[in-house]
Each structure stands twice: as C-alpha cells, then as structure tokens.
Computed example of a mutant assay.
Amino acid sequence: MDAFSTLTSNAVPFARDNIDTDQILPARYLARPRNDNHGEYLFRDLRQAADFPLNRPEWQAARIVLGGRNFACGSSRENAVWALYDHGVRAVIAPSYGDIFATNSVKNGLLPVVLPEAVVQSLIAATEADPNAQITVDLPSQTVTGPDGAVHHFEIDPFNKRCLLEALDELAFTLTHAEDIAAFERRIGRENF
C-alpha cells in the first residue's frame, strides 16, 4: 500500500444508502488472488446500467468516492477494499460505514472519512453539478475541503492515522518495534535459564 497524506481529486458520487460489499465486488470474484487487479471487477454488476456513475468518463479516474449511509455494509470481504484501491480510489467519504469495511480499508491504505450526512450530501450535489469539481482530503490536518472552499474536520483513530501516513500494515507496524521485541526476548530468555 502507498502512504496517504493529502489527496486532491474529483469524486464519484454514490448517493444510495446501504451499498454493500457484494455490490462493490460481486462474490464470484472473491477467489482471485490479491495480486490480481480487482479494480476491473469494481461494481461489475451495477456498471451494467448505462447511467451508473463510473460509466461516465469524468468519473472513471476519480480517486475519491462519496457514499451514502452505511457504505460497504454486508459481508466482511476485504476484496471490496482491494477493488476500490486497485481502481485508484484512495478515500471514501460517507456518513457511516460497515464496521468491517472501515477496518479493512485502513489496513489496505484506503482512508474512510466520516462526515455528517448534510455535508456529504452537499459534496454529492456539487459533484453532480460539476463532475470535475475538486475535493481535497488532508489526513495530517484531518480535513476535507469541498469545491466551494468549505473545510470540514473529521476524526480518525491516531493509530490508524499513523499507519496510513507511514504506509504501515499490521506487520510493518510491529517491525517498527523490532529492537524492543528483541530486547524483550533477550530479557525473557535470560530469566528462563
């Protein structure tokens, strides 16, 4: 995964509530290995509709998703995060998420931003009015700046923030404490003999 600091992009709007992980990545693609490009299967079934947002050329390269309430609810498939990430999405802004999706997002370098529903709806309206409107997500300052210049603060767990800023998954984070772990093992080893 790549480090996340600040991202400025247009955003693809998905105004529907309760978009589940099976809609993000249909179950028939779950057996594919991680090194496969899951992005090509992103919203595969929903994209059959001609008016689906990702079918519009303006939004195909958007790196931010604007979602409705309970975005990515449903089953605990990490592959849904992989599909978004492999497509190029680095942040999702929604009023709420499926809990497991939010956890999987951080572990895979995707920032799930929670903002009040009214703010998300205003960002969706701005994006629908101008598909090229730019939104900035700034993780160090924990802010989202909308196309109108309005700045919105979001909360994030300090551990998750560090992992995203430094591109650390759980193993890489553990290895940042390698010297402490080795010292502990030496101390325990001496005490047991």
Rank of each mutant, 00 (worst) to 15 (best):
P158A: 13
A94I: 04
I156S: 01
A126D: 11
D130H: 07
C163D: 14
D148H: 10
K161F: 04
D169Y: 00
D130M: 02
G109K: 04
A80F: 05
Q142R: 00
V114L: 00
V119W: 09
L168V: 15
K107P: 11
F154C: 05
G98K: 14
E128C: 07
T136K: 11
A80S: 10
H153I: 02
L111T: 03
V114C: 02
I156L: 03
S122Y: 12
I100H: 12
G98Q: 13
A118G: 08
A83V: 12
D169A: 03
K161L: 06
V119M: 08
A150S: 13
V113H: 03
V137N: 02
N104R: 02
L139M: 04
F159K: 14
A167R: 13
V144Y: 00
T103N: 11
A129F: 01
A182D: 15
D180C: 12
G149S: 09
I156E: 01
N108M: 04
P116A: 11
L168P: 14
E170W: 06
S96H: 09
I93V: 13
S141N: 08
I93S: 05
Y97M: 11
P95H: 04
H87C: 07
W82T: 07
L171C: 09
C163A: 15
F173E: 12
P147T: 07
A182R: 14
L165E: 15
P158R: 13
V89E: 04
F173R: 04
L164R: 08
V114M: 01
A102H: 04
R162G: 14
D86P: 03
H153G: 03
D169G: 06
E128K: 11
E117D: 14
T176A: 12
G98F: 14
A118P: 05
H177S: 10
L111N: 02
T145G: 00
H152I: 07
T103C: 10
I156V: 05
A102P: 05
D130S: 12
N108A: 10
Q134C: 12
E179R: 09
Y97P: 04
L84C: 15
L123P: 08
N108C: 10
F173H: 06
D180F: 07
T136H: 08
P147S: 13
L110T: 10
G146M: 01
A94S: 09
P131Y: 01
S141G: 09
P158H: 12
E179Y: 02
